[in-house]
């Protein structure tokens, strides 16, 4: 697979360490995310997946290690500075503007990268430069018909889709998705899986997900995190065959 090896590394994590008191939540993690891939991170509850993503996005600062994004050292940058460089994320617990309509939520994300945020006179809700791209992205994630519904009145699954729409609207170079199907019913999960499949190949995605069927169907590569440590990284078939992974996580005959 010469082509895969030559693929540029978009995000390079090196020797990342995060301690919460005596707990080692991130234990010397080194990881590369390649341009265009879906890279899944799996691991049991409390393995440190969310903590890792939070460090990549900048909400938590590591005790040691570096994070390079598109050739820039972003280890010390704030959340918003990293977002402006092109790192977008969804949260394990949905973070949206509950009082805004779905369209207003996405328009805010469009505005984030369109700028002109100190304009104080022209009505932003009549601004085609914001509304049109926002409407198109809502359409893309399958919420076109729900544009004028307040986010608080959307179903749980729709709120999660909306959050992904917002992340996409910032035109990111890297999407960090923390359990996008968390708390979803069967239908909602299927819709989300279809959406992620649609994004495959178009976006670079770091995906945390517990549903193994989804992970093995979508991921180009998988890293397994146990007690804060990456015990294996590889293609789905390699991970499935890995003895350490089977022992530590997947269990016999589970995958």
């Amino acid at each position: 697979m010469a082509a895969a090896i030559e693929q540029a590394t978009l995000l390079a994590v090196d020797g990342l360490v995060k301690r919460f008191g005596g707990l080692l939540a991130t234990d010397n993690v080194s990881l590369g995310i390649r341009e265009g891939e879906i890279h899944a991170i799996i691991g049991p509850n409390g393995a440190g997946k969310t903590t890792l993503i939070a460090q990549l996005a900048g909400e938590i600062l590591p005790n040691a290690g570096t994070i390079r994004f598109a050739g820039t050292d972003v280890t010390g940058l704030t959340v918003d500075a990293r977002a402006r460089l092109g790192i977008a994320r969804s949260y394990q617990i949905t973070q949206i503007f509950k009082g805004f309509t779905a369209l207003d939520n996405v328009a805010m994300a469009v505005q984030a990268q369109d700028g002109h945020n100190f304009r104080t006179w022209a009505p932003a809700r009549a601004d085609e430069n914001l509304r049109k791209p926002a409407a198109a992205i809502l359409e893309r994630v399958g919420l076109g018909a729900r544009a004028d519904v307040r986010a608080v009145n959307l179903a749980h699954g729709e709120q999660r889709q909306l959050e992904i729409a917002m992340a996409l609207a910032t035109r990111p170079r890297l999407l960090l998705l923390d359990e996008p199907m968390a708390g979803m019913g069967k239908d909602e999960s299927e819709r989300m899986t279809a959406l992620l499949a649609k994004l495959k190949g178009e976006e670079t995605i770091l995906l945390i997900e517990h549903d193994m069927d989804v992970v093995f169907a979508l991921a180009d590569r998988i890293s397994v995190l146990v007690y804060g440590r990456v015990i294996a990284t590889g293609r789905p078939d390699e991970i499935r065959a890995n003895a350490d992974v089977r022992a530590a996580y997947l269990g016999d005959g589970d995958a």
């Binding site: 918003d80 994320r89 503007f97 509950k98 207003d104 805010m108 994300a109 984030a112 809700r125 917002m166």
Partner: peptide, 17 residues
Amino acid sequence: LVVQGCRENERRMKALG
């Protein structure tokens, strides 16, 4: 709208950039 976004969810605003 940016100011109202900060009221609604400042964490999300930062994550948007």
